[in-house]
């Protein structure tokens, strides 16, 4: 039975951009439970200063968000922090994957996980790569 204390951080630092309040809160909690430090923001424009400040291993971003979508955010992130990995969560994955979709090279779209464990597993695999 899994009921681990939260805040067991230290495996990596993740910037989460998701505008759905409930999903952002739940994903933040789930990723923290998996052992990562998380900073969660509700839009791409809010994510940019965090990226510029540096120190993140992974940008985990929704694609459809107000003001700046996840694709543009990923492009800006690639310029600001070239070493940071990018993973898209949910929504219009086909757009992100298409050649002219605009996603930066190496960005990853989750391969349809149906449980948060698969999300955290994907994060682990990506950070280990």
């Amino acid at each position: 039975m899994t009921d681990q204390p939260e805040g067991r951080a230290g495996r990596g630092r993740i910037l989460l951009a998701e505008d759905d309040d409930s999903m952002r809160a739940f994903l933040e909690r789930a990723i923290q439970r998996a052992g990562y430090d998380v900073v969660a923001v509700d839009r791409g424009t809010t994510a940019l200063p965090h990226i510029a400040a540096g120190g993140f291993d992974l940008l985990l971003t929704d694609i459809v968000m107000p003001e700046m979508d996840g694709i543009e955010l990923a492009q800006r992130a690639a310029a600001l922090a070239p070493g940071m990995r990018v993973m898209f969560i949910t929504g219009f994955a086909a757009v992100a994957l298409s050649k002219d979709g605009g996603a930066p090279e190496g960005a990853r779209v989750l391969s349809k996980p149906f449980h948060l464990r698969e999300l955290t597993g994907e994060i682990e695999r990506m950070l280990a790569a």
Binding site: D3, D20, M23, A25, T90, G91
Partner: peptide
């Protein structure tokens, strides 16, 4: 996996987030 919420608001948010994530994966 057990998700214990501190209060009713956190409970509602967690349930909504969990269900929303699953719906979006299915739609994708």
């Amino acid at each position: 996996e057990l998700w214990e919420a501190e209060d009713a608001e956190e409970f509602s948010s967690s349930v909504a987030g969990d269900i929303g994530f699953i719906i979006d994966q299915a739609l994708d």
